[in-house]
Each structure stands twice: as structure tokens, then as C-alpha cells.
Design a protein around this nucleic acid. Structure first.
Lengths: 213, 213
DNA sequence: CAGTGGTCTAGACCACGAT
DNA sequence: TCGTGGTCTAGACCACTGT
């Protein structure tokens, strides 16, 4: 009896669709608790795993977040705006929570971009920024010659699901992607002189770029 | 017996970690088939649901992709580069697969940005671009007065998990985020005269922006 | 056709959070 | 303490893919 009743869709998808619609209709507001596994088992006459699966759908969509021992709650979206520009990281609304400077060997892709030998040791700075106590941005800066000043920047943006390590560092609930920005600074002669790798909690950020024709 | 043996971590996470490491070590290359549910059940002496859960982890991380009736396969990443600039969409390497132009009422946020009345009807163009037969970009353009030419653009980027509708349109496997770009064009007097909303398969794209100091 | 992943059941024990 | 979600078992039937 995999597909009883009048519907052809799996039960868990139908339950998930009901919940999703209720959220979008405003029946549940951000922070509200959704019906739990036991509620759904009773309401839809399904097994625990099926109810779990339905709630799992909303979580992997980023619409809900489970808190162990408490329930499943509607997530909220309050984005920080980051303006792409010469400044790099704008620190308003976020607080620097950790900073480390040490001599390290950069990863091969960075050493390559900076035209360093693969085993070169240079000063590296690690930063962590938080909002409301939650980390939202990790930054690693590579700048072998701090004296030089960049006059042009390129930012490359890639969006993906986090590694388990990143999910832990940024305390990301399931269904939250990360934005990875590689920011490269160039000297007037066109040489790359600094690289900054940023990892952002995608649910906390909205990026903004402007340009004239 | 939720946590037998010497490990404190759940079984499914341990299995997933083994597989993840094997992928990252190159034991399985992009496109290769991973051990299936039956293989994992036998190798680790676990129930089907536990093996499934382990394979599910790799899929929600975007590292693997299940093909029904065939197996679970390592995903590949071959990004298209999109340069932010006056051009909007660069069509090299992607093909226009569908285009519709019609008179519609834009969503409230767009009507607001363009200073239109909420019920205004304007020409709207929908485009779909594909690479190797797979859709990678959906575009909707709002341009109430085609005669005007924009001299400045702003792009706002947001990354999130797709709605089920978007996942279907872009044929996204689980664990694939989307990038949403709202591109606004401004006339010399500063008024917004066009809005273009793009939805990108994040696993297919790498965005690039440049600026001088 | 045999093998695969997809869905589902009906139980069980656990760790955690709120009360 | 009690209810919550988290993990796990041992079965089952299905739809799909490849040969």
C-alpha cells in the first residue's frame, strides 16, 4: 500500500505540501512551532518515519528548523546586505568574534593565483564574524606583501551546500547553503597581490553589486 | 542499541564519512557509481533505512546524485562563468531553449521598484537557457518602456534552496541550491526602468564581478 | 528479467528541552 | 518527568533502469 487514497503523490510529499502552504499562507509565522511527528501521525494516520520524512522536506528546503526536544519551527530570513566594492567586508551589523594571524602555507589554488611557490609560508589572517551570537561569515586573508596596495578587485562567487565542518563552524541547520567568495586584489601592473576567501551563511546574506555602462 | 561499538557518532554518519572520504581521495571519480544500499547493508551490517540515510547525507551535501533503478553516482562540477556587467546574460556555452513574451502584472516587489501601480499590465519576457539539454537558467524580464536605455545596473544576489517548483523546472537533484539574481537597470536620472529576475542552478554557475578602486 | 532506489509500516530505545 | 526529535531494525511492495 504505497499509494493509497485518491492521490498519486507519496504521502510524505502531500503532508509536506500541506505544511508548506500553511506556512506560505501565514498560518504559521517565523518562529512558530509546526505540528510535530506525533501530531502528523495522528492527523494523517501514517507511521512515524513518514511524518518525519514530511518534516524533513521542509527542513531541506530551508523553510523549517528542528530543535531537538522542542519541536520543528518556521525559519525567518533577515538578510544582511553586503555591498561588493573596494571595502571587502562591511562590519556594520556584524561583530568580529575571532581573529588569528599566523604564518602558514596557503592552499595550492591561492599560491598559484599569487604566483608563490607551492611551499611558500606567508602571513595568513583568519576572522570570524557573528550576528546575535551566531557566526555568519568566515574569512581567510592571504597577503604576502602587506606593503602593496590593490587598485582593482575581482570577486568570484560560488554557492553550494556546506561541508559538515563548515556546517558546524557556522552552526547551519540542514537546508542552508553557503556562499563562497574568492576576492582577489590586483596591483596597478596587473599582478594579483592578495586573496581573501569568504564563506557566508547564505541564509544571512544578500549580496549587492553595482556598475555603470 | 542506538550507538554500539566504539564510536559515539551515529552509524549513518560514520558510513557517510567513509564514503565522503573515498570520494575526496579520488577512489570514486565524478560519474562513478557508489556502493548501493544493498552493498552498504552487507558491508556495515545495518538495516536498509540506515544505509539509505548515509547515502542521503552525500546527496544533500551535493556530492552524489541518485538515479532511480540505477544507483547513486558521484556528481561533477563544471561551472559556467557569468560576468556581472552591462550585458546581463552571456549566452556563450548556453542555448536559449524557450522564450515567451506576454502582457502580465508583475509581482508587487517588481511593480514597487519600477514605480508602477500594483495592477499595471506590462510586457514580460520569460526565457529559459540550457546546457547539454539541461536547464540551467530561468529569466523573467520586466521593462515597461522598451525605448528607455539603462546606464547603471544593480544586481542583488541571494542563494537558497529551491522551491519544489523550481527544482522541477531546473531538474535539480537534491542538495542543489539556486542563485537568485535581481538585476535592476537605472536611467540617467536615477529612476529604475527595468528589472530582470534570474534563477540559476547553483551547481552550474560561478559568478564574477570586477571593480576598480 | 534482476537489481536498483523510493516509499511505507510498526515497532524500539535514546538524548535532549521544557516544565 | 514527559514530550520532543534522532537513530535504528526488519520486514514489505512499488517503479524504474539496465540488460
Amino acid at each position: 500500500m504505497a499509494n493509497p487514497g485518491t492521490s498519486r503523490r507519496p504521502k510524505y510529499q502531500r503532508i509536506a505540501a500541506d505544511l508548506r502552504q500553511a506556512v506560505q499562507a501565514g498560518e504559521y509565522r517565523p518562529g512558530d512551532r509546526l505540528p510535530g511527528e506525533n501530531d502528523l501521525m495522528a492527523a494523517y494516520q501514517v507511521a512515524r518515519m513518514t511524518a518525519r520524512q514530511a518534516l524533513g522536506v521542509l527542513q531541506t528546503e530551508g523553510l523549517a528548523e528542528a530543535r531537538k526536544g522542542a519541536g520543528v519551527f518556521v525559519r525567518s530570513f533577515r538578510p544582511l546586505r553586503r555591498r561588493g566594492g573596494p571595502d571587502g567586508i562591511d562590519t556594520h551589523a556584524v561583530a568580529l568574534d575571532g581573529a588569528v594571524e599566523e604564518q602558514r602555507t596557503p592552499p595550492p589554488t591561492v599560491a598559484d593565483a599569487l604566483a608563490l611557490s607551492p611551499a611558500a609560508v606567508i602571513p595568513v589572517r583568519d576572522h570570524r564574524f557573528v550576528r546575535d551570537g551566531k557566526p555568519v561569515l568566515l574569512s581567510t586573508s592571504y597577503r604576502p606583501q602587506p606593503g602593496l596596495v590593490a587598485v582593482r578587485f575581482r570577486e568570484e562567487i560560488h554557492c553550494r551546500m556546506p561541508s559538515s565542518e563548515e556546517a558546524q563552524q557556522l552552526r547551519l541547520p540542514p537546508g542552508t547553503p553557503v556562499i563562497q567568495i574568492r576576492r582577489t586584489g590586483f596591483a596597478p601592473d596587473g599582478r594579483a597581490i592578495e586573496v581573501n576567501e569568504l564563506t557566508l551563511d547564505a541564509s544571512s546574506y544578500l549580496l549587492e553589486y553595482e556598475f555603470d555602462v
